[in-house]
Nucleic acid binder design. Sequence first.
DNA 1: CGGCCCGTTGATTCGTCTCAAAGAGTGTGG
DNA 2: CCACACTCTTTGAGACGAATCAACGGGCCG
Lengths: 261, 261
Amino acid sequence: MSSKTEIQDSRCADLHGQKNRSIDVAELKAQCLHCDMNPVCHPPSLNVAELDSLDQWFPTRRRLQRGETLYDLGETFNALYAVRSGFFKTLLPNRDQRDQVTGFLMTGEIIGMDGISSGQHACRAVALEVSEVCIMPYGNVDQIEASFPNLHAHLNRLMSQRIVQDQAAFKILANMRSEARLAAFILDLGKRFAHLGYSSNTFVLRMTREEIGSYLGLSLETVSRLFSRFQEDGLVDVQTRHLQITNPDGLAEIAGGRPAH
Amino acid sequence: MSSKTEIQDSRCADLHGQKNRSIDVAELKAQCLHCDMNPVCHPPSLNVAELDSLDQWFPTRRRLQRGETLYDLGETFNALYAVRSGFFKTLLPNRDQRDQVTGFLMTGEIIGMDGISSGQHACRAVALEVSEVCIMPYGNVDQIEASFPNLHAHLNRLMSQRIVQDQAAFKILANMRSEARLAAFILDLGKRFAHLGYSSNTFVLRMTREEIGSYLGLSLETVSRLFSRFQEDGLVDVQTRHLQITNPDGLAEIAGGRPAH
DNA sequence: CGGCCCGTTGATTCGTCTCAAAGAGTGTGG
DNA sequence: CCACACTCTTTGAGACGAATCAACGGGCCG
């Protein structure tokens, strides 16, 4: 158990490495070529010649501190962002009340698609830890399209995938009681970590109980109580942010459990 | 009130007209050219020459009876559908429990974008009344793209718009108490009817209390009670499916009201 | 060391679901 | 055209889950 945690942590340290000094284009291109999340950013069928002009696509990156805003509601949309390392939340700000967390984004996932429709971003994206994003300028899509004929279809797939995921999240909120929501949330996080090559059973929560609660439509106290209950029931092992799933099947049982009404 | 209803009903009758006989291509193209929802289906900047080849885009339509399934979960995705007339719901089927309604789609809106990512539809779409859809085959996008360079960007905007709408719905579910959910739902329906040229204050609900409840994460009894309460408070006038908003500002006040927690 | 944010746990309140029954609306067949 | 059946809707009474209010403990940073 502790060894798994160490493996994950070391890999995170690598991904989060101190690369915030100025980087020349050649180095950047090389990074893209070997980037672990290549299949996410690019259509699977890119050939070498196409890869060669990738520097058109990713001229810059941006590094964010914990709590820093990547883009804000109402800002002019001009780029999509691929999370190269780190963790983000998206939220819809409320005037008085607490902000509504609408999603969590981890390494390899795309942020910013909300801005395409109106040309203005429709939510705020905030880094939950030191993070780095690849900036994919959207303004010159036509030119890029000429170089990468598959790219547009790939982007369509990504957006469609997002719609499907949103529908699943919608179903959880509308249909599930609190324990099923949290169980589904934990399993979803694990699945996404596994997709990155990490353990699906042992990982670190990057967000607070309040942020989880906001995302799941629960109070932070309820989230905390549920973690405690899951631990009592031998489903998970939680030490504040460090989480290990000790009974995935049991958790899945609860996640698929009967609805709230 | 009754006059408004009549106007709406007559227009509906027109849109729903008995056109289910076989139609030749020329007639179909003419229909597309004059279709009220043209700006929805096509990028705003289509020129005449482009419009001339629209029949490539809309070779067929499909007419559905009430309760008929447009596509089902797991079906091979090969087309997007534009609702030409009528009303649909999308739902995620559950094994034991009741199905989860994930959305309502009215004239001028696009169904099927869930299928792009995996090539299989990720939900079921069912007609709530006699409806007609334009079938937009997705397989030959590349060819079509050659004829309509703006089309792809337009589709991207539509999908992004959908993502933004889903986020708003997510926020309502996670953040709002029951009365705010229903108020927001009513106002949203009105806004979409207004967008079609109908009254935003007087319309007919095409779905049952149970379907509304499923969509809003409420029991059908709660939905019914809320309608009654809104009526008592002079916010709306409900006669089963016939709804008139008598106090839009009051309703908006409730819809933006303080959250559930 | 002290302040602050985060997390846990308890007691109580409140909102919504569930169960139940009756009424209204719609469609169908005699 | 009316009667019947079915689904949808309304309304009530009680139960239960989750929010709220409140207090304390722990970890992190200056």
